[in-house]
């Protein structure tokens, strides 16, 4: 059974215009998907639908055979890690450390022993340790982006969705993100990454979805 099933999905923000029309595709366990398309073609919208933040007007989205509309957001969040396109929308804790440990405290991540190790590992990797006790709101855009990535990567989820995570990252951090993607592949985890960068799309993706006004094209 495929991990994600998107079945003849139709969605628009208002009645007069159609944004996504009759879109279908599948994602298998441990598949690495790239999603591209012009600005404003609805990539972020598609992702929000896949996470159950928005509800489709027609069609269905299934995660491991279960319809997203019947699942509470928190259950979806425990299976799927999501890096928002806008990191400011993702960061809500008073300090960087609390942001990193939130899922361990309130989610199902459980195991307190590995918590500190994992968090420290990712804070080191993205060089955020010195901001441990600072407010995420004080960080620069790129640093917020790194924190959003680190907080999702440190969690133990089956599948990751990253919405344009490379925007705002410098060369070094892009390399580190690539390393993380490689690590995810090695761990046998699937992900979907929205990106316009050929480098990422060629080397870290097995299947490329191109979203156009006509539908999705699989390559």
């Amino acid at each position: 059974m495929s991990f994600y099933t998107i079945d003849s999905l139709t969605f628009s923000y208002n009645r007069n215009t159609s944004l996504l029309e009759n879109i279908s595709f599948e994602i298998d366990n441990n598949q690495h998907i790239g999603l591209t398309g012009d600005n404003g073609c609805g990539k972020t919208t598609l992702i929000k639908l896949m996470l159950g933040i928005l509800k489709p007007q027609k069609g269905a989205i299934l995660i491991e055979g279960q319809n997203v509309k019947d699942m509470p957001l928190s259950h979806i969040g425990r299976k799927i890690g999501y890096v928002f396109q806008n990191p400011e929308k993702q960061l809500f804790c008073p300090t960087v450390w609390e942001q990193m440990s939130f899922s361990f405290k309130y989610g199902n991540e459980g195991n307190r022993h590995i918590m500190e190790d994992r968090i420290n590992h990712y804070l080191d990797l993205f060089e955020l340790k010195k901001y441990k006790n600072d407010s995420p709101m004080k960080l620069s855009w790129g640093e917020k982006q790194r924190l959003a990535l680190a907080s999702v990567l440190s969690r133990n989820v089956k599948f990751l969705i990253m919405d344009e995570p490379t925007i705002g990252l410098d060369m070094l951090r892009k390399k580190q993100l690539q390393k993380c993607l490689q690590a995810l592949k090695d761990e046998g985890k699937g992900y979907m990454i929205v990106s316009h960068e050929p480098d990422f799309l060629e080397r870290y993706v097995d299947k490329l979805l191109i979203l156009t006004s006509k539908g999705v094209e699989v390559r």
Binding site: P72, S74, N108
Partner: peptide, 27 residues
């Protein structure tokens, strides 16, 4: 964002929930 981070707002006890809401309201 809180829910997608795995927190089930329905299952968190009331006391913890209130502190969680104040926690979120600040940012």
């Amino acid at each position: 964002a809180v829910q997608l981070a795995g927190a089930d707002l329905k299952k968190i006890p009331l006391g913890k929930k209130i502190s969680l809401y104040t926690y979120i309201l600040t940012p």
